[in-house]
């Protein structure tokens, strides 16, 4: 019964994540950017833009200029999360891909660094006056949710040792639309529920910063307005 509920939960969460994100990305892509507004100095070539975006997404270049605390904690959290996500691929692939197997030992500790990053960010949100001022309840809840996911995951890794074979069997089976049962483990339930919630709210929350950054005109435009005429459809219609 619980297994089936979780299966349904994950089907729904996946659906919301995928459909929601596709819808959002489609909206961003279709909304015109009528004027050239890169924050300059900006790259003058397309290759330069790709590099700028890569530095932004991989190293958080702008954030580094802004504030070392947010940068270090934020980067630690995101890098750890990326590693964790990659590590978790082993629950959804059979046989496990070589590189996923390779990063397993690091992934174990990434949970810890992820937690440190999240706590560092939350401390800032709680105790720095300015940041507390701009925080909404959802900002705190989002951190609580991520901390909950990290803590439950770490508990299963280092303390209670969840039945990972059972978990994998559950996901692989349901991915093939055949039923399987989830190991009865309250911490596991907590962990999975947290992840499913995160997936579901992703496309309707500030987590949209992930796809959003790629569509940000101040970062993704080439600085060549004198060399090439840039005009949106609705703007060129004004000329006729």
């Amino acid at each position: 019964m619980v297994s089936t509920l979780f299966a349904i939960l994950f089907y729904l969460a996946t659906l919301m994540l995928v459909v929601g994100l596709l819808y959002r990305i489609n909206t961003y892509a279709r909304t015109p950017a009528p004027l050239k507004i890169p924050t300059t100095p900006a790259p003058t070539t397309q290759t330069g833009v790709v590099l700028r975006m890569a530095r932004e997404v991989v190293f958080f270049e702008s954030l580094f200029k802004a504030n070392l605390w947010i940068w270090s904690m934020g980067w630690l959290f995101h890098a750890s999360l990326a590693l964790e996500l990659a590590r978790h691929l082993r629950y959804f692939t059979e046989p496990v891909w070589g590189w996923v197997a390779l990063i397993q030992p690091f992934g174990m500790y990434a949970g810890l660094t992820m937690l440190i990053g999240l706590l560092g960010l939350w401390v800032r949100r709680l105790f720095v006056e300015r940041i507390r001022y701009i925080s909404t309840p959802s900002d705190h809840l989002m951190l609580v949710l991520l901390i909950g996911i990290a803590l439950s995951g770490l508990t299963m890794t280092f303390v209670t040792h969840a039945d990972v074979v059972g978990v994998k069997n559950f996901f692989i089976s349901w991915m093939g639309f055949s039923s399987a049962s989830l190991p009865a483990d309250i911490i596991l339930y907590f962990h999975l529920f947290g992840v499913a919630s995160l997936m579901a709210i992703f496309p309707i929350s500030k987590l949209l910063h992930a796809p959003g950054v790629f569509f940000s005109p101040s970062r993704n435009q080439t600085d060549n307005p004198r060399e090439k005429r840039h005009i949106a459809k609705w703007a060129s219609d004004l000329e006729n």
Binding site: R24, T31, P32, L63, R124, R130, K206, F215, S216
Partner: peptide
């Protein structure tokens, strides 16, 4: 009409940078 506005309304995470 403005992708900038649309993306900027959604993307902020209140990081405080």
């Amino acid at each position: 009409k403005y992708r900038s506005l649309k993306v900027y309304m959604d993307a902020c995470v209140h990081c405080g940078a």
